[in-house]
């Protein structure tokens, strides 16, 4: 199992690097090498680390462990093909991690990041509507049933297109440098993880790499179906590059606009679900 975890972490960090490279090229800069995020993470691991004097020690350390545990669990969920609802739960628990990271240190910047994370709770709702739509169509939330459904009926991307849009939006709202990444905006230094440095920063980087990989992998598995590992990785790469294009071309929204866009999307998908449930 550990080999999957480590491999997924490195793959996710590599995706982050590619993300930065693509954004830079679109903006006419040379950009960092694509393995920069991996070097970054290893560099942070070698830095002197301690716990700030003002921090709430338990939360400060526990959130790092919990964020690794959550996304490891999500990866294991994909490997054992368990319930999509559980993946939704883990994704929502990630919000707690973001919040905890922000609250733990006592720094005002981190706290503002945490408050923004609460305000943008609407970013979880598209995933819920996506899960609901998938359940309505396939009649099951187990990943193995969803794969079986797709083997017979073709990719869900066509049948459940709004759900795919919703999940895409969810991934977009969690990606770095995106239009919705208000929790780590530069006007509040680094947002919620301003005060996590050294080992803690490195491990969180690794956990977030794992998160990116897991979310993109979920998208491919749920909406395109079982297509074998090489093609899945290719699909993940293409998906990441499309996300980078969106991130490069859009400015970061203000917190209120970000919440409004996410809520409106959820509302539209909810209307579509109700339409499907009542008329179809």
């Amino acid at each position: 199992m550990i080999e999957y975890i480590i491999a997924a972490m490195f793959a996710g960090l590599l995706l982050h690097g590619i993300h930065r490279k693509v954004i830079a090229r679109i903006q006419g800069r040379p950009g960092p090498p694509i393995w920069q995020e991996i070097l970054h993470t290893l560099k942070f691991l070698g830095k002197e680390s301690w716990i700030p004097k003002t921090a709430s020690q338990g939360v400060y350390v526990a959130v790092v462990g919990i964020s690794i545990a959550i996304w490891t669990a999500a990866l294991m969920l994909l490997i054992t093909q368990e319930s999509l609802l559980l993946l939704f739960a883990l994704y929502v628990l990630h919000k707690i991690v973001e919040h905890g990271i922000g609250l733990a240190s006592g720094s005002p910047y981190a706290k503002f990041g945490a408050i923004r994370s609460v305000v943008s709770a609407a970013s979880e709702l598209p995933l819920l509507s996506s899960v609901a739509l998938i359940y309505l169509i396939t009649g099951s939330l187990m990943l193995r049933d969803i794969e079986a459904y797709q083997a017979i009926n073709g990719p869900l991307l066509i049948v459940a297109f709004p759900a795919a849009v919703a999940l895409y939006l969810v991934i977009l709202s969690k990606i770095h440098y995106g239009p919705f990444s208000i929790v780590e905006a530069k006007e509040i230094v680094s947002g919620y993880w301003t005060e996590h440095f050294g080992v803690w920063r490195g491990l969180m980087n690794a956990a977030f790499g794992l998160k990116t990989f897991v979310l993109l992998y979920t998208f491919v598995v749920v909406f395109i179906g079982p297509i074998g590992l090489p093609l899945t990785l290719l699909a993940i790469l293409i998906l990441m590059i499309t996300l980078s294009f969106v991130c490069a071309a859009t400015p970061m929204l203000s917190p209120y606009d970000s919440v409004t866009v996410q809520t409106l999307t959820t509302g539209l998908i909810a209307i579509y679900i109700i339409y499907l449930g009542v008329f179809a």
């Binding site: 004097k53 003002t54 921090a55 709430s56 020690q57 338990g58 939360v59 400060y60 526990a62 609250l103 733990a104 240190s105 006592g106 720094s107 005002p108 706290k111």
Partner: peptide
Amino acid sequence: IAAFDRPERQL
């Protein structure tokens, strides 16, 4: 965590 952790001191 809630039972054993001390609160943070804000700056």
